[in-house]
Amino acid sequence: MVHNSLPLQWRKYPERYYLRGNYCENCKTSFFPQRQICPNCRRKGKLVEKETPYTGKIVSWTEVSVAPFGFENETPYFLAIIELENKVKILSQIVDSKKEKIKTGAKVKKLFRKISDIDPEGAIAYGYKFKVVD
Protein backbone atom coordinates (compact mmCIF):
# COMPACT_ATOMS: atom_id res chain seq x y z
CA MET A 1 0.00 0.00 0.00
CA VAL A 2 1.36 3.39 -0.96
CA HIS A 3 0.03 4.72 2.36
CA ASN A 4 2.73 2.82 4.16
CA SER A 5 5.61 3.38 1.79
CA LEU A 6 8.32 4.22 4.28
CA PRO A 7 10.81 5.88 1.93
CA LEU A 8 7.99 8.04 0.56
CA GLN A 9 6.80 9.03 4.02
CA TRP A 10 10.31 9.74 5.17
CA ARG A 11 11.07 12.02 2.20
CA LYS A 12 7.88 13.91 2.97
CA TYR A 13 8.64 14.70 6.63
CA PRO A 14 9.71 18.31 6.01
CA GLU A 15 6.57 18.91 3.94
CA ARG A 16 4.19 17.12 6.27
CA TYR A 17 5.76 18.07 9.62
CA TYR A 18 6.45 21.77 9.11
CA LEU A 19 5.05 22.73 5.70
CA ARG A 20 8.34 23.12 3.92
CA GLY A 21 7.66 24.37 0.43
CA ASN A 22 9.73 26.52 -1.87
CA TYR A 23 9.77 29.96 -3.39
CA CYS A 24 10.83 31.36 -6.72
CA GLU A 25 13.01 34.40 -6.20
CA ASN A 26 12.47 35.39 -9.81
CA CYS A 27 8.66 35.62 -9.88
CA LYS A 28 8.21 35.87 -6.09
CA THR A 29 5.80 32.96 -5.95
CA SER A 30 5.54 30.39 -3.16
CA PHE A 31 4.92 26.70 -3.85
CA PHE A 32 3.66 23.88 -1.69
CA PRO A 33 4.56 21.08 -2.05
CA GLN A 34 7.98 21.96 -3.40
CA ARG A 35 8.37 22.13 -7.15
CA GLN A 36 11.45 21.10 -9.08
CA ILE A 37 10.80 23.71 -11.79
CA CYS A 38 9.04 27.05 -11.43
CA PRO A 39 6.03 26.75 -13.76
CA ASN A 40 6.01 30.52 -14.29
CA CYS A 41 9.68 31.13 -15.04
CA ARG A 42 10.88 27.68 -16.04
CA ARG A 43 14.62 27.88 -16.79
CA LYS A 44 14.88 31.44 -15.45
CA GLY A 45 13.29 30.49 -12.15
CA LYS A 46 15.33 30.47 -8.97
CA LEU A 47 13.79 28.14 -6.41
CA VAL A 48 14.82 28.24 -2.76
CA GLU A 49 13.43 26.19 0.12
CA LYS A 50 11.00 28.07 2.27
CA GLU A 51 8.57 27.25 5.04
CA THR A 52 4.94 28.02 4.46
CA PRO A 53 2.93 29.99 7.04
CA TYR A 54 0.91 27.92 9.51
CA THR A 55 -2.24 30.02 9.18
CA GLY A 56 -4.72 30.76 6.43
CA LYS A 57 -8.40 30.69 5.57
CA ILE A 58 -10.86 28.14 4.20
CA VAL A 59 -11.65 28.49 0.49
CA SER A 60 -14.00 25.52 0.27
CA TRP A 61 -14.90 22.56 2.48
CA THR A 62 -16.78 19.29 2.57
CA GLU A 63 -17.91 16.83 5.19
CA VAL A 64 -16.88 13.35 4.06
CA SER A 65 -19.31 10.58 5.00
CA VAL A 66 -18.05 7.80 2.76
CA ALA A 67 -14.34 7.22 3.16
CA PRO A 68 -11.73 5.35 1.16
CA PHE A 69 -9.73 2.44 2.50
CA GLY A 70 -7.89 3.40 5.68
CA PHE A 71 -10.23 6.22 6.69
CA GLU A 72 -13.43 4.19 7.27
CA ASN A 73 -13.45 4.66 11.03
CA GLU A 74 -12.86 8.40 10.83
CA THR A 75 -16.14 9.41 9.18
CA PRO A 76 -17.58 11.89 9.17
CA TYR A 77 -14.52 14.10 8.73
CA PHE A 78 -13.99 17.50 7.20
CA LEU A 79 -11.72 18.32 4.31
CA ALA A 80 -10.98 21.83 3.18
CA ILE A 81 -8.98 23.72 0.65
CA ILE A 82 -7.13 26.37 2.58
CA GLU A 83 -5.40 29.44 1.26
CA LEU A 84 -2.37 30.08 3.44
CA GLU A 85 -1.08 33.56 4.07
CA ASN A 86 1.43 33.30 1.24
CA LYS A 87 -1.44 32.51 -1.20
CA VAL A 88 -0.48 28.86 -1.41
CA LYS A 89 -3.45 26.48 -1.43
CA ILE A 90 -3.37 23.30 0.60
CA LEU A 91 -5.85 20.49 1.07
CA SER A 92 -6.18 19.26 4.62
CA GLN A 93 -8.49 17.73 7.16
CA ILE A 94 -10.09 20.14 9.59
CA VAL A 95 -10.30 18.79 13.13
CA ASP A 96 -11.04 20.07 16.65
CA SER A 97 -13.55 22.55 15.20
CA LYS A 98 -17.29 22.85 15.64
CA LYS A 99 -19.21 22.11 12.46
CA GLU A 100 -20.90 25.51 12.39
CA LYS A 101 -17.50 27.21 12.44
CA ILE A 102 -16.22 25.35 9.41
CA LYS A 103 -17.13 27.64 6.55
CA THR A 104 -15.64 29.53 3.68
CA GLY A 105 -13.49 32.38 4.94
CA ALA A 106 -12.91 30.87 8.40
CA LYS A 107 -9.39 31.35 9.76
CA VAL A 108 -7.45 28.17 10.43
CA LYS A 109 -4.11 27.16 11.91
CA LYS A 110 -1.93 24.12 11.42
CA LEU A 111 -1.77 21.23 13.88
CA PHE A 112 0.50 18.19 14.11
CA ARG A 113 -1.58 15.00 14.01
CA LYS A 114 -1.57 11.39 12.99
CA ILE A 115 -2.80 11.11 9.42
CA SER A 116 -2.63 7.39 8.89
CA ASP A 117 -2.23 4.64 11.47
CA ILE A 118 -3.93 1.65 9.93
CA ASP A 119 -1.55 -1.14 10.87
CA PRO A 120 -1.19 -1.48 14.65
CA GLU A 121 2.26 -2.96 14.15
CA GLY A 122 3.27 -0.65 11.29
CA ALA A 123 4.75 2.81 11.13
CA ILE A 124 2.59 5.81 11.96
CA ALA A 125 2.30 8.61 9.40
CA TYR A 126 2.19 12.01 11.06
CA GLY A 127 1.43 15.24 9.26
CA TYR A 128 -0.66 18.38 9.15
CA LYS A 129 -4.30 18.94 9.89
CA PHE A 130 -5.87 22.30 10.56
CA LYS A 131 -8.34 23.70 13.05
CA VAL A 132 -10.58 26.73 12.91
CA VAL A 133 -9.43 29.56 15.16
CA ASP A 134 -11.78 32.30 16.23
Partner: peptide, 15 residues
Protein backbone atom coordinates in the same frame (compact mmCIF):
# COMPACT_ATOMS: atom_id res chain seq x y z
CA UNK B 1 -8.63 11.96 19.77
CA UNK B 2 -7.93 8.92 17.60
CA UNK B 3 -5.41 11.00 15.66
CA UNK B 4 -3.54 12.25 18.71
CA UNK B 5 -0.92 10.45 20.75
CA UNK B 6 1.85 11.27 23.21
CA UNK B 7 3.95 12.38 20.24
CA UNK B 8 1.48 14.83 18.66
CA UNK B 9 0.77 16.35 22.09
CA UNK B 10 4.53 16.70 22.61
CA UNK B 11 5.03 18.49 19.31
CA UNK B 12 2.31 21.04 20.04
CA UNK B 13 3.55 21.64 23.60
CA UNK B 14 7.14 21.94 22.33
CA UNK B 15 6.12 24.50 19.69
Amino acid sequence: AFDEDACTLSVEAAR
